[in-house]
Design a protein around this nucleic acid. Sequence first.
DNA 1: GACTTCTGGTACTTGCACGTACCGGAAATG
DNA 2: CATTTCCGGTACGTGCAAGTACCAGAAGTC
Lengths: 210, 210
Amino acid sequence: MLESERSLGRPRDARTDRAILEATLELIAERGVHEFRTEDVAARAGVGKGAIYRRYGSKDELVTAAIAGLVSEGIVIPETGSTREDLVRLMRQAVELYRGSLAARLMPNLIGAMAQKPELAGAVRERFLAGRCAALSEVLQRGIERGDLRSDLDLELALDVLGGPLFYRLLVTGGPIDERLAEGVADLILRGFATRPRAKSRNARKEQTA
Amino acid sequence: MLESERSLGRPRDARTDRAILEATLELIAERGVHEFRTEDVAARAGVGKGAIYRRYGSKDELVTAAIAGLVSEGIVIPETGSTREDLVRLMRQAVELYRGSLAARLMPNLIGAMAQKPELAGAVRERFLAGRCAALSEVLQRGIERGDLRSDLDLELALDVLGGPLFYRLLVTGGPIDERLAEGVADLILRGFATRPRAKSRNARKEQTA
DNA sequence: GACTTCTGGTACTTGCACGTACCGGAAATG
DNA sequence: CATTTCCGGTACGTGCAAGTACCAGAAGTC
């Protein structure tokens, strides 16, 4: 069923496939999801419009495919033995990615569309966030086991404090995305969620509504 | 020269002014900056298209005016005597604003346009951020003077840690914007940037600090 | 060779939405 | 009253871009 379909006639050029998706991503980054023209995609990819519409039924489909086709970066969970060093390394990777790269210019233009198309939102979160979040979770978990972090920390909050300021600067304030940010949030998490409170009785510990 | 211009003929209806801007904001919130139609604005405002174009030369101008016409909420700097309480109150205000309100639905659709139009970015930052940032800065400054916070804290980082997670959830993850978030970031700042009288080496093992 | 489906390129149709023009009527001035 | 400019509503012109159709040629299978 799968390969038998593809035997007759001239096969599709894989370079054309890639050129189309690449040009689409660049144009989304430059102009926005709704503000680029398929004709520009064709021109930039050095391709005919026919080649685009032979692959994707509509512009919307093209956009979704371009985002879904992004290869999520291979994130390796660092194991330096130091919780701080592990955190900082992951944050450094994020800083590097969102400082000037395609992803950085892509993200602001995706936010609006994400609010409108849940499937696109899912794809973005999957490609850009899921991997790093999982890695950070793992590092935090190890930090707890190692005794560097309190066991009752709000994991979701910790992840959002690590990632939030970076995206806040990228999307809203335009502030610097640099090494200082990476180390700053890591240190803040380490100090703010350090194992310390002994006597302090936290109420509502039983009820942990998500 | 100023009032003499406006003396002849039927004066403009202030209710029409407001209806147009209000409908514009709602439609930006619902569909996005580039995805709504001026005809829809007219229909929703119960207004003719002429009334719109008599006021604004183009759709772009209308959008800018609608954002610029937003009244930035009157933020009062709390003075409870407690740095934590002051911080939490400001964060609670922010949580309230960005939980379900027009501003919350507006923001995602503005991000993309901000990246394209610097003037719009300026307006958004002015209307939505500036006031709260100034208030938070003031509270943090007082926290330093009061001895609750270290004097060498990275102010920009602190502000972004307070605001970042909220926007991260609003724009990216879709996570809960609630009281827990407000208190969580406030507490994290207080613990993470607490005054540390001791030396930098973390030799004090599990010592109970006051 | 015959046949099929690809290729980039161009010309075309079509629809949507911005912006304009005009209507009869209303609200102001003088 | 005349005049002016507003009002909501509708009809129209216009331009841009999505999507289609077709070209001549290329790259495959049989």
